[in-house]
Structure formats: structure tokens, C-alpha cells
Design a protein around this nucleic acid. Sequence first.
DNA 1: TGTACATCAGTGAACGCGCGTTCACTGATGTAC
DNA 2: TGTACATCAGTGAACGCGCGTTCACTGATGTAC
Lengths: 199, 199
Amino acid sequence: MTTSKNTTRKRDGSLRTALVEAGISILREKGIEGLSLRECAAQAGVSHAAPGYHFKNLTGLYTAISARGFELFAASMDVSRSKADQTPKAQLLAICEGYLDFAVNHRELFLFMFSGQQLDGGNQDFAAASSRAYAILRETCEPFVEPGTDPEEIELLVWSLVHGYTHLAMINKKRPRHVGEALPKLPNLLRHLTFDGTI
Amino acid sequence: MTTSKNTTRKRDGSLRTALVEAGISILREKGIEGLSLRECAAQAGVSHAAPGYHFKNLTGLYTAISARGFELFAASMDVSRSKADQTPKAQLLAICEGYLDFAVNHRELFLFMFSGQQLDGGNQDFAAASSRAYAILRETCEPFVEPGTDPEEIELLVWSLVHGYTHLAMINKKRPRHVGEALPKLPNLLRHLTFDGTI
DNA sequence: TGTACATCAGTGAACGCGCGTTCACTGATGTAC
DNA sequence: TGTACATCAGTGAACGCGCGTTCACTGATGTAC
């Protein structure tokens, strides 16, 4: 239904992409419970054995979905900061907004990515995408690092606060909050952070 | 094996308790994937149909396990603050340590409790236990609330920070960190919080 | 340009597995007399 | 104190289901000549 049945056999990896997108769509509609190799195959319009050709096993699919999630996650922060003023404070607030935005727009995917689900640790796509997300945080925190101190301290502080706030918001409500509900509180939260008076 | 087979039929609800404890034990040993009604029954030494007598369905068991988790969670914060100095700052640090302690000692249970898993919202045990945990936070934050401001703001700030830090720590490592690894960073994190200079 | 052939992505039937749930039953416990 | 009986927690067989995985296969695509 979603794709014509048998007419074309692609060798360009497009089914792999389609299976990952199907997985993300299933997460949105049915949550983690509904995610399986067979369901992804059905939603992509191929036989249930087809995913086995592209993913070693279920963990392989999960890893690919998570990798794609981190790409979207990084992109959300990137877009948000590119729209913001160039001041360090505005940039920091912007990536936090991008963080929250992503979670609100992809609640189940966000929960899946941060569920502690066992993934294929050696996967390069996943490593690249999650590194990309962390790099955005690091770049944005950099202006606030006092010379001679460990940058990780402020990164961990900001990451913990925005992740905790976002994660609790996603957990506590059965239905995703609107961005408009959760977003206005972020600046207030960040206002309470201090790094030797620089924020 | 764990209990004698058929000798005693209890009418005191002890099998219900045993099933919940079995569930917590299964979470520890096999993670969320391994948790099922049948596995709980097996670990409690009863037939696989027995849980149906105590829980309406799988959601009922999940809710009971989560409720018990929040009891342990609240107890961990309570014990920690009772050992600490009576100053507001020491009390605040103590409940955060209790928070982290619980997660480190019950990693899979912690992740399960905060997984967004659909639970029986109307369950009274669960409501009581989670309210108890939140009440501890509220009490401990109370000295820091500026008169005329919304107490929720500082509660949300502290909750977000400690939850985010703890959750990221539990996610990022396959194996639970030792308390000794994660704990020393907490005071540093809290040091960066400011409420009009009162922390 | 045409033909023969190797490649390989995807098919569909089949497998065994663990799951939640149902249901007729059993037998120990508690109670009424 | 003894007996008859109702209660009800737990049993074990049976059910249908969706799952991941395997495997012989097909047929379109790409390549060698």
C-alpha cells in the first residue's frame, strides 16, 4: 500500500531508510511496545523477512532508529541556535529549546533513545550522531568555561538540567505537552544557574 | 524451590508481596525485557496462572512494582536526610544523594519507574508512594522558597537537575556506576544553583 | 547492440518460543451450627 | 468439641497470538563478452 509491491528492487539502500522511518512512525503511533521487525516491514510494505537483509537482528534495527533519532535531535538544536542571537546566553537558551522541541515533537522516540535499551555499541552511525549532539552542547557551553577548569563540569550541569526537565515533562503527562506549555519555564530554570556570575 | 510448593495457602496477601518482590528481582537480573507475569510466578514458586488472582492484568503488576519502587525511592531519600546535618543546604544535598543512591542500587527498577510505561493511573498505592517521594522534595526545598514566589519553581529546578544527572548516569553506562563514582560530583552541581544568593 | 550469466534484494512458508488469558478443577481454610 | 459446608487461593491444561529467525526460491538488475 505505502509502496508498490514488487515493481522495483532498489539497490541504493532506500529500503533500509524506509524501515528506519517506519520504525520512527511506529514509535509515534504505538509506542515502544509496538516496535518490531515485522511491524516495520509491514509499514514499509515489504515481507516480514526483508528487514533481516538490512539489519543483523532486532538490536541492529533499534540501533539504526536510535542513530536516526540522534540526527534529528542534533538537527533540532542546530536549527534553534542558528535562529538565535549570537550572544552566548542566547545560544545556550536556544539549544535547550531545541532539546525540548525535539522531545515534544518526538515523544516516544525521545523516550526510546533514552530508555537504556541495549544497542549495538560498535555502530558508527550511532556513534557519529550522538557525538554530533554532544558536540553542539560542548560548543555552546565553551564561552562559559573558566580558563583552567574542566569544561565537563558546566556541560554536565546544563545537560543534566535540560535533560531532567525535559524527561520529567515527557514522563509525567500521558499526552505530549505542547511546546508552548513547557518552553516558557526554561529561561527561569536557566536563570538559576551560575558560573562565577557569568550567567 | 524458593517457596514450598503446596503446603500452605496464605490469605494474608503475602503472595502478592512475593510477586512484586520477584518482579523487582527480575528487573535487577534480566532488565525490563525479562519482566512478565509468568516469570514473576516462576520466581515466586507458584503456577503461572496465580498472578491473575492478584493483578487484573500485566498493567496491574507493573503498577504494583512501580509503587513499591517509589516506596523504596522515598525511603532512600528519607534515610539519607535523617543522617545529615539539619541545615537546609545539608538536607538538600542529602535527598539528592538519596536519589542517586536509589538509582545506583536499583538501576533497572529506576529506569522502569521513569520509562513512561503505561500504568494504572487510579491505583492508590502508586499515588501514595509517588506523592510521598514528591513531598520529601517539597519539604526540603521549602526553606529556599522566597516568600510570595511559587514553590514549584525551585522544586522543579532541583528535581530536574538531580533527575537529569542521575538518569544520564544510569543510561550512559551499561553497568551501574558505583555510588563512589557519581556521588562526588553532586555537590559541585548543586553549587551552581542560585536562588537570589541563598544557596 | 544482443545474449548469457552471476548477483542479490526480497518472498513466503515454516519453525519454535514465550507470552497473557481463560477455565474447569482441587483442596486447604474458616465458619456455622 | 465435632461435623458439614461455603469460600477462595492456587493448579495445570489449553487457547490463540505475535514474535525473531531460517531457508529454499524467484526474478529483476548489472556485467562480461
